[in-house]
Computed example of a mutant assay.
Amino acid sequence: MNQIKEDIKDYLEKIIKEEKQAARDGKIPEYIEKVDNEDHGAVSMAMMGLDGRYVQAGDDEGTFSIQSISKIISLAVALMDQGEEEVFKHVGKEPTGDPYHSLSKMELQEDGGPLNPMVNAGAIAVVGQVKGSSVDEKFGRILDLTRKLAGNDKIDYNPEIVKAEGHDLNRALFYYNRYGGYINEKHDLEDVLPVYWRMTSIEMNIKELSRIAAVIANYGVDIETGEELIPRDVVRVLKTFMVTCGMYDQSGAFAVDVGIPAKSGISGGIMAAIPGRMGIGVLGPDLNEHRNSIAGIRLLRNISERWNLSLFNQ
C-alpha cells in the first residue's frame, strides 16, 4: 500500500474496535494518567501518505505527551550539530535487552557508556551534545524542529508533566554519564536534564505524530513544502535505531512481528515510518510489561501483515 485510500478508514475502525478490549489489560503510568487524563481502552490511529493524504480512526484523545518519541528528534538535532563521529563518542549503537531506565548494562560494560540513544542514559548523553548557551536555547532548537516536522508552530511542552515525573533516576543517570566522561565535565545537571524533561513533555495530537513519521518516511523532506528538514544521512541513522532500539526491550520481537521502523513512548504513543510510503501515529495508553502500547503493537502488526509493510519482506 503506497497511498492513503478512502476505504482504509473503515478497515481501521474495524480493527480498532477488535483491539479495544485487549488494551484494557494494560496499565497507565500514574503520573501520565493524572496529568494527561488518558482513558483505559482508548485507541486512535492516524496514517499520512507522502502526498499529504490522511486518515484517522478510533477515539479522539486530543493532545498527549510524546515522552520517549522525542528521543528521535533530539538525536536528529545532535547529529546535525555535531556529526556522527562526535555524537557516538558519547553514546553507543547497540540494542539492549534491559529496561530503558536501567543502569546495569553500563555497569557491566568495560567502557561503561550508555548503549544507545533510545535508552534514558543515552538520550541524556545526546542532549548534552545539543548546541546552545542555555536550557531555553537548547530546548528551543529541539522544539523548533518538532514544530516543523509536525507542521504546527504552536506545539509546546506541558510543565505539569515535568513536575509530575519522578526525576531521581534521571539525575543518577546524568551523574553516571558525567563521571564516565560521556557528558562534558563542565556541564552541570541543570544545563542538561531540564532540556530532557521538557522534550519528553512535548504535547501533540495523533495527526501531528503521523506527519512527523511521514517526513521521516520521506527521507527528511517536508511532505508539503519540499524543504529538507533533516539530512538524508541523519534520517538513515534515525530509522536504524527505530528498528533496533525503538521499542525498548521489545525491539527484537517487534522487528520480527511487525518489521517497521518505530519509536514508542510511555504515554502509549507509537510513531512508525515506512520508508518511501507513509507515516503512522498510534495512541493506546494501556501499556504492556515492556511499557509499550498493547493496542498500538497489535494494530501495527495487523496492518503490516495485511499490506506487507515489513522492511524485511521488501
Rank of each mutant, 00 (worst) to 15 (best):
M1E: 10
M1C: 05
E6G: 14
E6D: 15
E13H: 05
I15C: 07
K17F: 10
D25Q: 12
K27M: 13
P29G: 05
E30R: 12
D39C: 08
V43W: 07
S44Y: 10
D51R: 03
G52I: 06
Q56A: 10
G58Y: 07
G58I: 06
G58N: 08
E61M: 15
G62S: 12
G62T: 07
T63V: 15
F64G: 00
I66H: 05
Q67V: 03
I72D: 01
I73C: 01
I73Y: 00
A78H: 02
A78K: 03
M80Y: 07
M80A: 10
D81Q: 10
G83S: 13
K93A: 00
E94Y: 10
P95H: 02
T96V: 12
T96R: 01
G97A: 07
K105D: 15
L108D: 10
E110N: 13
G112N: 06
P114V: 04
L115F: 10
L115H: 02
A121C: 11
A125Q: 05
V127W: 00
V127M: 00
G132P: 00
S133Q: 10
S133A: 09
S134N: 02
D136G: 11
G140L: 07
L145P: 00
L149D: 02
L149Q: 02
G151E: 11
N152L: 08
K154C: 04
K163A: 12
A164D: 03
G166Y: 04
R171A: 12
R178V: 01
R178N: 02
G180P: 12
I183R: 01
N184C: 08
D191E: 09
V195W: 00
W197N: 06
W197D: 03
R198N: 03
M199N: 01
M199H: 05
E203P: 01
M204K: 08
I206A: 03
I212H: 02
A214V: 08
A214T: 09
I216Y: 08
N218W: 05
E224N: 14
R232S: 14
R236I: 09
V237E: 04
V237S: 02
T240N: 10
M242Q: 02
M242E: 01
M242C: 08
V243A: 01
V243C: 07
T244Q: 03
A253E: 14
V256R: 13
G259S: 11
P261Y: 11
A262L: 13
A262T: 03
M271F: 09
R277F: 11
M278N: 05
G281M: 08
V282F: 09
L283P: 00
L283R: 11
G284R: 04
P285G: 03
H290L: 07
H290A: 13
R291W: 15
R291Q: 12
A295R: 08
I297H: 14
R298L: 05
N308A: 11
L311F: 15
